[in-house]
Design a protein around this nucleic acid. Sequence first.
DNA 1: GCATTAAAGAGAG
DNA 2: CTCTCTTTAATGC
Length: 225
Amino acid sequence: MNKGVWFFEEVDLYDILCPYKYNDHLKSHPLSCYNKTDFLFMEGDPVREIYLVAEGRVKIGFYDKEGNEQVIAFLGRGEILGEKALFGENRHKEFAQAVADHTLICKLRVEKAQELARDYVPFSLTLTKRFGERMGRLERRLQILLFKDARQRLVEFVKDLCRDIGTPYRTGVKITLEITQSDIAALIGASRKTVSLLFTDLEEAGMVKFFGRKEIYVPNLEALV
DNA sequence: GCATTAAAGAGAG
DNA sequence: CTCTCTTTAATGC
């Protein structure tokens, strides 16, 4: 299993929470629904809850000195955010923003999460496992960023997109982009200009094809190098 | 960095 | 609610 590096894997930690969720949690804390561009929290907000993405997608980032937005990651279904709260962080260092409509978030108060981690073994095991996996992905991502050129980084990024959010289409895979080229540029450590040029190259080489601005079609994943 | 084009938003019918 | 005009944002060179 070699899952995405740039977009975090979509697994069902959700399942793990379900037994708990449906008992008493859901009644008192229904899922919150966010629309595109709604913020879950901002930089510097006090940390009160950890969040579980039940549906949709969330962007994590911060603003640099010049006020430019810097994207760190996109999180999909099953991913946790704000989990550093469990290690004592009390202010968010990043903002979290929904990038899809109907993004459903299950919120869990920090104390509750700690209680759950203590009393409910599967929950705590899953947390541990996921931190390990996340570490592994970060290592791989770091290696790609350090040792590959911009073109390879973009290619790896697109491949991961295919794995994570791709749907079969004709002979290959289709991806619906909910992010812009500057977001991609930030994620792979390239300039927006480079990303734009590289995409044009890849399209000319027939490795990818764009439908409008929102969809990429990859005819053959193997041939994408 | 600027020109083109697409998407989002506002306003009218 | 839907169509169209205006504004804003994304892309490509």
